[in-house]
Amino acid sequence: MKIAILSDVHGNFSALEAVIADMDRRGGVDEVINLGNMVSGPLMPLQTAHFLMRQNWLQIAGNHDPQVLHETTGVRSASDAFAAGELDDPSRWWLTSLSDSLDARLHTGELWADRLGGDVAVCHGTPRSPVEYLLETAEGEGIRLALAPEIAERLGEHVPAHIRLLACGHSHIQRALRLPGGMLVVNPGAVGMPAYDVSRAHPLSNYHRVENGSPDARYAIAETLQGQWQVDLISVPYDFESTAQLAIKNGRPDWAHALRTGYMPRLL
């Protein structure tokens, strides 16, 4: 079994195309899992949605996907609102049809056992929240590797012992950790958004930045070899400059800076 794992496309259709081309070049992928946050952002939400709608992939909603459709002020961000204004009725319906990241069957391997074999679990953030990091902790103005007790507390009793591979997204940071007991936890990183910042209260931070430090699109390929899951974390170059220019055209120079550099802009 070989599985490609994607997350956090954020409407960056050019980055998604580069990932698909790289995936096709490598070949041999049995299934593709998309962990959510499909269209939010000032880029190409409609094209991205229409492409993803046509794929026979296993796809779940992230935290932004329902927010794109939520019109309440203070809930939907400017990136969500831009995407909402670009979508058509079929793409909106598709967003509402995505599997909920909090569906317990995703965490026990039951929902897609016929395609993944029953030992693979998925979530967007953690099994208990789509807006919580699993493998990282926000601290001060940055993000660090979570400590083992932090990860264990976030997993709780949601993921049973027979799960050998758990795929998560949300933090946009590529990472793979093998936990006590042997389960491999994989975050494929972000396809389309290499840096962002968050002004929301966390236990150790009221504001933090997440930065990959390069503009590449990211994804992962996990496969079973000799009965164990292992993973390749992949970084793919693409034409980020044209995407950055589109962000500027749509009024988001902060996105343009992040797309070009993998860092958030600083005030001088």
Results as ranks from 00 to 15, higher is better:
Met1Trp: 02
Ile3His: 04
Leu6Pro: 07
Asp8Thr: 03
Asp8Phe: 02
Asp8His: 04
His10Arg: 07
Phe13Val: 10
Ser14Arg: 05
Ala15Thr: 12
Val19Ser: 04
Val19Gly: 03
Ile20Ala: 12
Ile20Leu: 13
Arg25Asn: 08
Asp30His: 14
Glu31His: 12
Val32His: 10
Ile33Ala: 12
Asn34Gln: 11
Leu35Met: 09
Leu35Ser: 07
Gly36Leu: 02
Asn37Met: 07
Val39Ser: 00
Ser40Phe: 00
Ser40Asn: 11
Gly41Ser: 13
Leu43Asn: 00
Leu43Met: 01
Met44Lys: 05
Pro45Gly: 08
Leu46Phe: 04
Gln47Tyr: 05
Thr48Gly: 08
His50Phe: 07
Phe51Ser: 08
Phe51Pro: 02
Leu52Phe: 03
Gln55Phe: 12
Asn56Tyr: 08
Gly62Lys: 01
Asn63Tyr: 14
Asn63Leu: 12
Asp65Gln: 06
Gln67Leu: 15
Val68Asn: 00
Leu69Asp: 05
His70Cys: 12
Glu71Met: 13
Gly74Lys: 15
Ala81Met: 14
Phe82Trp: 14
Phe82Ser: 01
Phe82Val: 11
Gly85His: 10
Ser91Lys: 03
Arg92Ile: 12
Leu95Trp: 12
Thr96Gln: 12
Ser99Val: 15
Ser101His: 03
Asp103Lys: 13
Asp103Tyr: 13
Asp103Gly: 13
His107Val: 04
His107Tyr: 05
Glu110His: 13
Trp112Phe: 15
Gly118Pro: 11
Asp119Leu: 01
Ala121Val: 08
Val122Met: 15
Val122His: 04
His124Pro: 02
Arg128Met: 03
Tyr133Ala: 09
Tyr133Met: 13
Tyr133Arg: 09
Glu136Phe: 09
Ala138Arg: 00
Ala138Asn: 02
Glu139Ser: 08
Gly140Asp: 08
Gly142Val: 04
Leu145Ser: 10
Leu145Ile: 06
Ala148Trp: 08
Glu150Trp: 07
Ile151Gln: 00
Arg154Asn: 06
Arg154Thr: 07
Leu155Asp: 00
Glu157Ser: 11
His158Asn: 06
His158Trp: 03
Arg164Leu: 03
Leu166Val: 08
Ala167His: 00
Ser171Lys: 05
Ser171Leu: 07
His172Leu: 02
His172Cys: 03
Ile173Val: 13
Leu177Val: 15
Leu177Asn: 07
Leu179Ser: 06
Pro180Trp: 05
Met183Leu: 01
Leu184Thr: 07
Val185Trp: 00
Val186Ser: 03
Asn187Gly: 07
Gly192Glu: 06
Gly192Leu: 04
Asp197Met: 04
Ala201Gly: 09
Ala201Ser: 13
His202Thr: 13
Pro203Phe: 15
Ser205Cys: 12
Ser205Met: 12
Ser205Val: 12
Asn206Lys: 01
Tyr207Val: 11
Arg209Ala: 08
Asn212His: 09
Asn212Leu: 10
Asn212Val: 10
Leu225Val: 15
Leu225Thr: 15
Trp229Lys: 02
Val231Arg: 00
Val231Ser: 01
Asp232Leu: 07
Asp232Thr: 11
Leu233Met: 11
Leu233Val: 09
Ile234Cys: 10
Ile234Pro: 00
Pro237Gln: 11
Asp239His: 10
Asp239Asn: 13
Asp239Met: 09
Ala244Arg: 01
Ala244Asn: 05
Ile248His: 10
Lys249Gln: 15
Asn250Thr: 14
Arg252Cys: 14
Pro253Gly: 11
Asp254Asn: 15
Trp255His: 14
His257Lys: 13
Met264Glu: 15
Arg266Ala: 11
Leu268Cys: 10
